[in-house]
Design a protein around this nucleic acid. Structure first.
Lengths: 204, 204
DNA sequence: GCCATCTTGGACCGATCGGTCAAAGATGTG
DNA sequence: CACATCTTTGACCGATCGGTCCAAGATGGC
């Protein structure tokens, strides 16, 4: 049966994305991807070309989907980066708590497996982390009382904490545990933006 | 050739551990484990029983090896938990910076892949994270000006940051980036131990 | 020196991997 | 209705997976 495409490409990408998200690139077999999307190998290869290309599409889709939500969270608190970061973490925590979604985070998952991926894929993941860094940094710079170095470090810190939430949630950490991590992280951001660190006087 | 065992079990475990560490459980093939250890399948199965059992032995060995170093780091600063945590992160950073070792951390790696492991293995990994939590908590409690709740949250925070270092390093983050994360984390610990957080007054 | 015992390397097993391909059916154009 | 074009299904490919097994060789007790 055919003639014209029988399925919605974006819906298929959503399902494939979840398989990569849940099992990682290597453990996401074409059989698993096929049954999750309801597609045969012919359709998968005819549409996407290869497992690698499908993975890239899924990465892009994931980044676009949740990247937009992160943007919204920051944008909801213009001029107030601390509230922005809180809202950002809230989005992450709600995604993690959603039982209809795999645990963790596709980017973190892929970053952890980066050395076992194609060099190309590894660089792509690194690029996505950089995008996240720039996004956070831009939000933090919104009330630029801090120097550019501090801004970079804080953004790296927020990205790092975000990755840690993914790892811990995959290990089975509770929402409560995760929230204590974000609470402390937010306090750190607030302190660092309010004034230089005590004990280690900032050169800025 | 044989009669008596021809190889050192611990040395073989060291090599196998690195393979799991570098590639993760699923991607660590028996061929890779065999060539890394220099052992044939007969020796591997005769000594360890199965890939899963070998993995467990490697987890234990990893936890024992680096757990001891963490203990040392904390023990080197009795009564000074902040310095203890700094020393702890220093051990982690040096291990990550060591080019003769795989990137990241075997525990973090396994935690991220936890949902794809045996239920048994997943629980084991969770147990190792708990052990790390208890270790950090005990060190923090050394100068117990903080309540037990705060202690738990801080220990979770330190464990979380440790996991984030593993993920970021595997994605190719530089030592400098990693150090800004630990610097901010240490400042957070110092602040929380010195007094309750501002803005969010602690109930303790 | 004989022999039970153990270890070792490698052949081998069925299952599964990512990927290809051809046959068959559906479609739009003329 | 005929036909070129496209999609889909599922059989099939070689490679590799984790795991088993056995023949050959080394060992120590007697």
């Amino acid at each position: 049966m055919s003639g014209r495409k029988q399925f919605d490409v974006d819906a298929a990408l959503d399902q494939a994305m979840r398989v990569f998200w849940q099992r990682g690139y290597a453990d996401a077999s074409l059989d698993a991807l096929g049954s999750a999307t309801g597609l045969g190998r012919g359709s998968l290869y005819g549409t996407f070309g290869s497992k690698d290309a499908l993975f890239h599409r899924c990465l892009e889709r994931y980044a676009a989907l949740y990247g937009a939500r992160y943007e919204d969270a920051f944008a909801a608190h213009p001029g107030d980066p601390v509230r922005g970061v809180e809202a950002f973490f809230e989005v992450v925590l709600e995604r993690i708590a959603d039982p209809s979604l795999p645990a963790g985070c596709l980017i973190a998952q892929s970053a952890a497996q980066s050395p076992t991926l194609t060099r190309e894929s590894g660089e792509r993941v690194r690029g996505l982390l950089d995008r996240q860094h720039r996004r956070v940094r831009a939000a933090l710079a919104d009330s630029s009382s801090a120097g550019p170095g501090t801004l970079d470090e804080l953004a790296t810190f927020v990205v790092a904490v975000n990755q840690s939430l993914a790892v811990l949630s995959r290990a089975g950490a509770s929402d409560t545990e995760l929230r204590s991590v974000t609470r402390l992280a937010c306090a750190t951001v607030a302190r660092s933006l309010a004034g230089p660190a005590p004990g280690h006087p900032s050169p800025a």
